[in-house]
Structures are given as structure tokens and as C-alpha cells.
Write a protein that binds this DNA or RNA. Sequence first.
DNA 1: AATAACTTTCTTTTT
DNA 2: GAAAGTTATT
Length: 819
Amino acid sequence: MRTFTLFPDAQERTDDQQKEREQAATAIVDALNPAQQEAVTAADGPVLIVAGPGSGKTRVLTHRVAYLIAAGKSAPYQILALTFTNKAAREMKSRIQKLVPEEAGARIWMGTFHSIFARVMRREAEKIGYSSDFSIYDSDDSERVVRELMNDKGIDTKQFSPRMIRSLISSAKNQMVGPSQYARLAASLPQDKAAEIYGPYEQVLRTANALDFDDLLLKPLQLFQEHEDVLAQYQDRWRYIHIDEYQDTNHAQYRLAKLLAGKHHNLCVVGDDAQSIYAFRGADIANILSFQRDYPDATVVRLEQNYRSTKTILRVADAIIKNNRDQLDKSLWTENADGEEVILIEGISEKDEALKLEHYIRDLKVRHGYGHRDFAILYRTNSQSRAIEDALRRGGIPYRVIGGISFYQRREIKDVLAYLRLIVNENDIASLRRVVNYPTRGIGAKSMQKIEAFASAQNIPLWQALRRVDETGVGPRAINAVNGFVNLIESFTERAKTEPVGPLTRDLIKDSGLLGEFRREHSTENLVRWENVQELVNAIAEYAASQGDEVRLSEFLQEVSLFTDADAGDDLEDRVTLMTLHASKGLEFACVFVTGLEEGLFPLARSLDDPRDLEEERRLFYVGVTRAEQRLFLTMARSRFRFGEQMAGIPSRFLDEVDAEVVRTEAGQHMQRRSDRFSANRGSAGGGSGRGSGRGAGSGGDWVEYETLDPDYYKASLRPPGSSGSRGSRSSTGSGGGFGRTGRDGQPKRAEPTGRRVVLDEGEGELRPGVLVEHDQFGSGKILAVDGTGQQAKATVDFDDYGRKKLVLRFARLRVLDA
DNA sequence: AATAACTTTCTTTTT
DNA sequence: GAAAGTTATT
């Protein structure tokens, strides 16, 4: 065991304390390999850790922070560690507290750039003219603002999508180009339109006292640039700064890091240029490539040993990344075993692909003892999850989907949040617009137009115009409605000053009419929505509890905006994980399926024009492949439903780039190269078309013949405890409790029918082909077909007088005629 | 002003 | 295969 001489400026301690600390520090360092040790114990000053996948870089960062704390570097200063997700921060923090338990009280600021600087803004907002109750606009909110502005200016939102305009504005902001400068630089038609919107957009956010995601970085930058004293204060607060996934920092983040580390230079960054996959949102790979130029005295450590994957998997990864030109040279190696060959799976359609995934998972689980949590299914676009979910659900395999529409992005949740935001911040125009006539209360577009005209004529905030609605010239009904709305919001603003937020939110949901909206129609969908809203109430109550009595609603709202699905993950449950390749960054799984390897999908069609985009896609593939510890599967479908129609799938060019030596097809052959890839595997894959006997039965020894097995053999893997499988998995982080709690809280008359779930499509079961039905308008007819379920259920009906029509059951109000 | 039903458009990845 | 936009009807 080695002992380290700890830093000379450590606090004064008794000899015993000093000894204890040195032992702790030694233990922290001894757990690592020499290269990692070097990274962890590097002297003060800039440190660049270039680390390949699976090299334990997050571990290194964790240990470095722990080591600094053990060495007494933290007190009285604090350590800042910026991670890529909030979840990563949480995990790192808890590991640090295990490594240096006696220092659990050490102040570590840990989180994403966005969450850390939202905190900074909460403290300093007034200094640059914002109030600390600012709202945070996510890209959805921003897009709405952009859309409205475009409508105001008569820009065709069909020709130029608000999303595109928003993202142009966002990248301008990221590069710190202001509206007037952007107008000068605009060189294309969309850019001209963006330039037209950019200034007003900034103005709207400003008057709304709102910050978008870009502002969360830019405003602190502005703060630091305008207030040297504030900068100095933060420079001294955070003497040691750590940044994980440095290759994915954007320009503003780069500047922030540079400013903050400007005084003490203790900036330690970890990254892998080969894993840079966020250029589309402004990440600049140059940040890591030029670190040594920015900090010539930097200690550079390379971590090239991989501890995660088998040699085979690494070989595939290496073959992939070699096709990229702009890459720092790294040679990855591992002492791990060769491991299993990589398997290439071909489905006849995306359904077949999904079915095969399900079969493989089942098979591996039974034959090799994997748990569900050992599997990850990765895809390029969120929409690909559907087919896979269907297959897993049918197979009774529990799963969770990360990303997609996260809980806080759901409409019903955003509606409630918009009310809360308005209560906190009456200038929040976007939230106001969202809820002013939802649920409908008679304040339609025309009335709002008049009120807005009045506001701009009088040069008063929109909210004030609402208060003076009787001067705006709208009709008496609208005046009444607006006054009701204003009173509603203001009474809650008043109550929010003294009352706890949990019950307050519950009352709000009732008084605003949202509750009535959910009850109005008893559909399964509304029930789910209502459950989600209950869950939100619980989340708020929970937050309130964790913060003690002093609850800041605005703070909760701000944090919620930065919360993502990936942060929520309860890893404890034994489920298969489904997510995009992007979301998989930093994670690892025993078995990984990279799916949808088809031209146009992965790589995505849009990336084909620009070689840099294509390289990013390739890095994405590299990231996906290197998530696997033991087994890797590459899958594709020969046809796929996209753009609403069936499209043929051509094997991805990426498949030509992997090392064919270590890849075999399901049939056990070595993968064939490009020249004949279009016919490759056709013989054996053809068998997959016969679904019933499918599962590659024809391919020989690879597959267990399910039919010949003891029927109980698979029982264990069927339908584990978790209830209705997937449905809840997106959003059901403990939803059950939600109802109970609200119900218990003691207003029996409001007791929602929690147990009795009235499913109002109850008639649906009777609507089968052949059944005679009657429609209010079309008269009688015969059902020809029914497709979709629940909300989406549609029936094709042949009406006696009107001919064939396709009706959405939700609206159609079909009555069954007795035969 | 609100609703129902039909039509169109668009689908990358996300802090 | 879903959302937003459009139109017709009350």
C-alpha cells in the first residue's frame, strides 16, 4: 500500500486526523489502475482525460473528487462537478459519499450545466434584470412562442416550420450571435425568417421573465462578464471544476468553464471525441480537441484500456470508428475474454425484427441466466419503440422506455404546470396563452386578439390588459369570463404566499376546471391523464416535504423543467430497457441490441449529404456498440412502416464497416460483404416470413425449438409481478400511491372513482365486423373492419345510404342495431 | 365560441 | 400514425 503526500495547503489537522485522511486518500487511489491513478492524483492545474468507452472515466472523475475531498481541498471551498444528466450527478454524489463518508457534509455542487446555472440564476437574477421567479421555457415552450410570432408576422408556418426556426435561433444564441448581427449574417431564406423572429422572440422571453435552455447558460455568462465581483466570488467558491462528457459541451458551456476556471485553473475534463453525438444541439467537438491549446500546461492522461466489453465487441467498435477521419488516435484494448460473436439479425418487417428481439431475449434469459435488466434495445428514433413495445408486451417481457415523451412533457402535466407558472409569474405570457381558454371558458381567439391589441396600444403587460378587460371592447360574456379567470389566478397567487403547495395545487386543479375536463368524458385516456396529474400533485408534495416547510413553488417549477426521463430511472426493477442511442450514452448492459440498421434510418437520410453529419451518425453507432459488455446484436428490417407507408429497407452502410470476421448471421454464416449484401442471408431469412414457425427455426442449432420444449420451461419468464406490463412503464413511477393519498386526505365527496375504472369505450367489444350499426348522420350500415384500440379505434362501415366510411369510434357514437 | 369530422403535414437525436 | 389546421354545424 502506498501513501500519498497530501497537498500542503490542506487545513490544519491533528496528526491522527492527517493520518486518517491519508489512508482514505490512499484507499481511493489504490482501487484504480496506474493510468487512472495518474488522472486522479494529477497536481493542481488543468487536466485533460481522454478516455475511450468503458475505461471507467466516470469512475475516475468520481474518485478524483473524493480524493480532493479526502485531501482537504474542498473546505472551505467547494467542488463543482458538471455531469451530463442529473442522474449521473446523483449517482456520482452517492458514490463519493461512500468513498469519503466522514466528509459527507462537504459541499459538492454536482449536476448538469443547466441545473447548476439555473441555481446560480436563482441567486443572481436581479443583477441582470430578471426576477428570481423566472420561468424556464423548454424547447416546446420556445417553439410555441416562435409559432405565434410567425403567425403575427404572417410567415407561413408550413413553409418554414417553427421547430426549424427555433433551432436556428437556438444555434445563433449558442454561438453568441445577437439578433442584429444574425440579421446581417443570414444567408439563406430560413435564416432570414429566423432573423426576423429572433429579436421579437428575445423580447417576448424578456418581458415574460422567462429563460430558455440557451439563456440558462448565456445569462450567467452575461452576468459574469458584467459583474467581475460576482465572477470572482464564483471562481473562489469553486476552486476545482470537473466536467464529464466534455466532448459534448457547446460554446457557451466552454466559455463558462473557461471563465470560472480562469483564476485557479483547476479544470479537469473527461471526454472521448469518438463519442461526440450532440453536435446537432451545438456541442462542439473542437472544445476537447483544442483543450491542450487553451491550456498548454495541462496534464494529459489517456485511458485506453476497456473494462467493459469483450474483445470481439471492441473489435467491431474499432472497425466502425476507423471509418471516421477526424478522430484523435486512440488504441483501445482490453484484457477481457474474446466473448461471443456478434450476431446479425434480419427481420422481414419491423414487426418481425421486434419479434426476433423478443425471442432472443427470452432465449438468452433462459439459457444463460440473464435478467431482464441485462438487456438494452437501442434505436435511432423514438418512433421505433412502438413495434418493439408491442412485441415485448405480447411476449410478457417487462420493459421500460426511456425518453420519448417524458412525464413532464405530457400535455396534461404541462397544462397544470402552466397554471402554476402563471400563478408564480404573471408575466409568463406563454403559460397564460396556454391556459387562458383551457378548459374552455369563453375566451376565444377573437377576444384575446382584442385584449392583446389593447395591451400593446396602452403599452401595458398583457396581464394588466386582462385586468382592465372592460376597457378592451370585448363582449360582455368575454368580460365576465376574463374577470373570472383573473380572479382565479390572483386568488391563487395570494394563497401561494402562505399556503402549502400540495393542497393548493389540488384546489387549483379543481377550481380551474381541469378536473371537470378530465371527468367530462370517461375514457381510458382521460383516466391515464388524471392519474398523471395525481402523480404530479404527489411529486409536488414530495418536493415540498424534502425542502422543509419553506417551499418555493418557483424553484420546483424551475427544476421540473430541467428534469428528464433519463433521470427518473428506477434501475432496481428488472426490466428490459428501451431507448434511443443518444440516451444510452454512459450506460452499459450485458446484452445490447442495436436495431434498425437500414439506410435512411441509421444513418438517417438527412445526414447523408454532409460528411460531418454522417460521421456523427457513425459515432452514434460506435456509442451504441460500446454499451455492450458481453453480447451484441445488430438488427435490421427488410421493410418498415415509415411516413405512413411500407418502405423497403436496405442494409445500412454501417454493416459493411463492421469487422465481418466476428459477425455472423443467425444462420451461423459469416456476414457477407457489400458486393452481395443485398442478397446476403436471403435464403435463411426467408424463413422468417412464416411467422408462426419463424424464429429462425430453419437456421439450425442457434435456436431452441420452442415447440419441443417442456411447456413450463418458459413460465418463469412470462408475466412477472409488475402489473399491466408496459402501459404504465413510461409514466407510472409509483402512480398507484397517488390516488390513495389524495383520496385519504379527507374530502370524501371529491373521492374520485379510483378503483372503479369506468372505461367508456365499453361498447367497443361489440363493434366487430359484420355488426349492424346506426350513426346519427349516416344512418344504418354494417361494420366491415375495426382497427386500432381505445382512443385510436376506427371502424370501416358500409352505410346503406352513404357508402363506405372510416370513422373514429371516439367521435362516431355508433349504436349497435339489434339484428 | 365550441364542437365534430375531415385534411394535411411531418417525423432525429435533447439539456 | 399522430398532431395541427380547416371546415361545417350547432
